[in-house]
Amino acid sequence: MLVVRFFARVREELGRDVLEVPWTDRVADVDSLQEHLCTAYGVHWRRVLAQDNIIRAVNRAVVHGNSPLDDGDEVAFFPPVTGG
């Protein structure tokens, strides 16, 4: 199982903070997972997740570009950070 989390504006726009996706070889990397979510949840999700400033993290570390996923991984999608 993959755990997928959304934060801040992305969470609000999607109306979800967390969901689980069964791990298969069709969601074996972050790009494939994102495409899977967009196909499963529709055009609104595709528009939100396609924004070019969206940051992606795997197991609580930011990834740049695509990244492989294993069963049990946690993936997060969030906007640029504004703490401090």
């Binding site: 934060f7 906007p79 950070v81 504004t82 703490g83 401090g84």
Partner: peptide, 12 residues
């Protein structure tokens, strides 16, 4: 502080 503002996952 500079690095925290641009890399810690916090949102206002």
């Amino acid at each position: 502080m500079d690095y925290l503002k641009t890399s810690a996952p916090l949102w206002k």
